[in-house]
Write a protein that binds this DNA or RNA. Structure first.
Lengths: 240, 240
DNA sequence: TATGTGTATATTGTATACAGATTCCTAGCA
DNA sequence: TGCTAGGAATCTGTATACAATATACACATA
């Protein structure tokens, strides 16, 4: 009894969780494309699971705002919209600022680690997925000291939404959003002990990303509207 | 054709949504008590529905952080904890401040409405459920101009969690948390055009509620710990 | 008495079945 | 040609079935 190798229980991951992850990863790459609807039976055979855990995963994603469901018609991927970016980014900015204020002053080791991550981000050439990952890692490292689980969790979820937009932007425009300079400025402020300044720079960082996305999105929306083909409208979902 | 009464489609509410609402309302009153586990079959016959939509509702509530699920063992209501209050309230405060800043200056009609709601809140005697509702209505009215759907939605969800604590506090201590004076101060600031001051007062409002809850919760936790009966531990859930 | 083992029961996680809506397609007609 | 009616096929929402796992309890053993 009590051998060391039995100490850790074996990990069990419900199918619904695995499916959820797969779907989310896909959507971040635009795979079930924004606006497209989802066929449960088809998807379930594709994934090799029954409709039950698949539906559980889909409903979970509805709850997080990636999908929507209209009664009787099923699930569809929420379309991208300028309005959502305008709504979303200020929330993320505010919460990251809150998290930064809730963190202890970073140690020099942490600052070094942040600089390293930023250097790697700078060295990324064309691989925008890697860039996204690295940027996310930087922010997560910056705020990891916050000791507010719910806050970090909320931020993480909201940033998945942001990723949906940023990856779409990079994929379609071919451009990469790199915040290397802004990260450096934030680090400088932190090194000088200027937390308030760092917070404002962090806020600005999100504002700048927004300024990349919005013009592009407006252009995209303009490109699709004029043809004036019966634009499919998405009605309100349930969950009263 | 096109009579006025046919204009609006009849509303269809999936069972999962109705169940979800019932469960949530119950939990806010402490009915499935914090910490207690849930028997799916039993509950499903109680509600007169099958396990499928019930599970969908339960999983939804897991996603929102009211329940948790451990693989193979099922669902349980998350216990109340001081840590959650310490995590939660600053987030709500920050987001309400953000929403206030995102709102246009309130018209005098709105200010009047807010004063009315506050007066009704003041007149409430013992009915703490009514007090909670009225307080919630006041905040919602204050921020209703924000034009940021996701922000308002996020706030609403987080406040359900706060309600779980506040209703428990009122039920157990018999005391009622009334923020009438604080609301008045906020209104004064708004009437004077002092948005920044109003924001700080709003932030303070949440801080004060926290200061009611935390001592009580610590006391409750202290009352339960010392007996040192094998405290049931809750393990991490899934959703990787 | 305390501790471990085997078996019965209960409960969860997933799969399948079924009824009711919705969508799609075609034929008929203006 | 364009539009409408209607019925087949598809799909969703919910119920039920089934297998795997967990819990409870009696019994054996030290």
């Amino acid at each position: 009894m009590s051998q060391s190798w039995t100490a850790r229980p074996i990990e069990r991951v419900p199918i619904r969780s695995q499916v959820r992850r797969r779907l989310l990863e896909g959507m971040l790459r635009g795979d079930p494309a924004p606006g497209s609807s989802i066929n449960e039976s088809g998807l379930s055979v594709l994934l090799g699971v029954s409709r039950t855990p698949l539906r559980e995963a889909l409903l979970n994603l509805v709850g997080e705002g990636f999908l929507s469901a209209t009664p009787g018609k099923g699930f569809y991927v929420l379309p991208l919209s300028t309005k959502e970016v305008e709504d979303l980014y200020p929330i993320i900015a505010a919460l990251e600022v809150l998290a930064l204020h809730a963190s202890p002053s970073p140690t020099s080791a942490q600052l070094k680690r942040l600089a390293e991550i930023n250097a790697e981000l700078e060295s990324v050439r064309d691989d925008w997925e890697a860039a996204l990952r690295q940027d996310e890692l930087w922010h997560q490292t910056l705020l990891s000291g916050a000791n507010n689980r719910r806050l970090l969790e909320t931020i993480r979820t909201l940033k998945y939404h942001a990723q949906r937009y940023e990856s779409a932007y990079m994929r379609h425009s071919g451009r990469i959003i790199r915040s290397v300079e802004q990260h450096r400025a934030i680090l400088r402020a932190l090194r000088d002990g200027d937390r308030e300044g760092a917070a404002r720079l962090l806020e600005a960082n999100w504002k700048i990303s927004q300024d990349f996305l919005l013009p592009w999105l407006r252009e995209e929306e303009a490109r699709k509207e004029p043809p004036s083909r019966k634009a499919m409208k998405y009605e309100r979902s349930d969950e009263g």
